[in-house]
Every structure is written in structure tokens, then in C-alpha cells.
């Protein structure tokens, strides 16, 4: 054989209850570098896997605050510092008339931060995966749950991990080489 080495051990599931139990078992036996590929978000599966709560809301919040502060600064500075626009003797700056634009820019920047933050946290776009040639893995976006334990995990050892996958009820346990 070539110099290819195993990067992951994969196993399939079809029952949402089984994958839930399997995820909990993988997590409890101390594996950390594993993932489950599913066609739709399975509720509670992330918790069973021991996934830490995402920091995305903080990114969104940061984006929103950036938008809000910029809006206030923009309206205040352009209207009452850089070019004093006297409209019927009304105040050069007031929060009342600024609210619509402040709101819209807050929403806009929160939206952009959420959108780009999401892809950043997911590590996307990434048009290559070591698993991409595996037929079962390709069906993960269709109708199969695929559990993958990566060889980069500290507890990973080819035989034990394979045996463990079979024990927790995975079908078609196989190695992926790259």
C-alpha cells in the first residue's frame, strides 16, 4: 500500500434514538475529536456530544454594538460637527430622529456579524474534506447519520476504536485513508 494513513473511522446510523445514545457513549468514553454528520439538526444531539455552547451570540452582539455606536457617531458628527444643517431651527442632534437609522445600522451589522461569524466558526467555506469520497459520508446530507472518530484524537487507536464503534451499534464501520 501507499503512504496513506487512516484519518478517521466512520460508522453509519439511521435511527435518531440510536445516534443519540451513541453520541453520549462516545462523549462519555472521553473522545473529543469526533463528529456526527446529519441531514438535519437532531435536537439534543449537540448536548449529548458534549459540544460547548457556541460563542456566536457574542460575535453578533459585538457586531450590533459596532453598528449602533457607528450610527450614533455618524449622525452626530455629520449633522452637528462637520456640516451644521439647520432645518427649521431644530436641534442639530437628537436621539428621537436618530432612532430609525440607529436601529437599522444595528440590525445590519448584527446580521453581517452573525452571518460571517457563523461561517468563521464552522470553518467554512472549505471545499475539501478527507471524508468526501466516502459514499456513506455523502449520504449524510441525505438520509444517514454518520459518526466519525478522527485519528487525531488522543484516545484513538485503530482496533479499539473500531471495536468501540461496533459496540455502540454503528453499521458498516470503516476506515478512511488520506
Amino acid at each position: 500500500m501507499s503512504d496513506k494513513k487512516t484519518v478517521a473511522v466512520l460508522g453509519n446510523f439511521t435511527d435518531p434514538n440510536k445516534i443519540m445514545e451513541a453520541a453520549a457513549k462516545v462523549h462519555q468514553s472521553g473522545y473529543t475529536d469526533f463528529d456526527i454528520y446529519t441531514p438535519y439538526p437532531v435536537h439534543g444531539l449537540d448536548k449529548a456530544m458534549g459540544v460547548k455552547r457556541t460563542i456566536l451570540p457574542y460575535i453578533s452582539f459585538g457586531g450590533g454594538m459596532f453598528g449602533l455606536s457607528n450610527a450614533i457617531f455618524l449622525i452626530w458628527w455629520t449633522g452637528s460637527v462637520d456640516y451644521k444643517l439647520n432645518i427649521g431651527g431644530k436641534p442639530l442632534f437628537a436621539f428621537q430622529f436618530s432612532i430609525p437609522v440607529m436601529f437599522e445600522l444595528t440590525v445590519l451589522l448584527t446580521g453581517l456579524a452573525t452571518f460571517f461569524g457563523l461561517w468563521f466558526l464552522c470553518g467554512l467555506p472549505k471545499w475539501h474534506s478527507d471524508l468526501q469520497d466516502d459514499e456513506g459520508f455523502q449520504r449524510a446530507v441525505d438520509d444517514t447519520f454518520v459518526l466519525s472518530i478522527f485519528s487525531s484524537d488522543k484516545r484513538f487507536s485503530l482496533e479499539t476504536t473500531e471495536r468501540f464503534m461496533n459496540e455502540i451499534g454503528a453499521d458498516n464501520v470503516r476506515r478512511i485513508e488520506a
Binding site: 446529519t38 456530544m49 475539501h128 446530507v141
Partner: peptide, 28 residues
């Protein structure tokens, strides 16, 4: 598709993002 794999770790972020954008779009 940006190389989406259906990873549950990604779905976890994704669902929160969906919730935030839904929450933003409502007042918007």
C-alpha cells in the same frame, strides 16, 4: 454550498445563527 458537510458541530452554530437572524428580522 461552501463545503457544508452536515457536521453536528456546525449545525450547533447554525441553529443559533438561525435563531439570531430570525430574532433580528422580526423587528426589522
Amino acid at each position: 454550498s461552501l463545503g457544508w458537510t452536515g457536521s453536528m458541530r456546525n449545525w450547533h452554530h447554525y441553529e443559533i445563527a438561525y435563531m439570531i437572524l430570525a430574532g433580528l428580522s422580526t423587528p426589522l
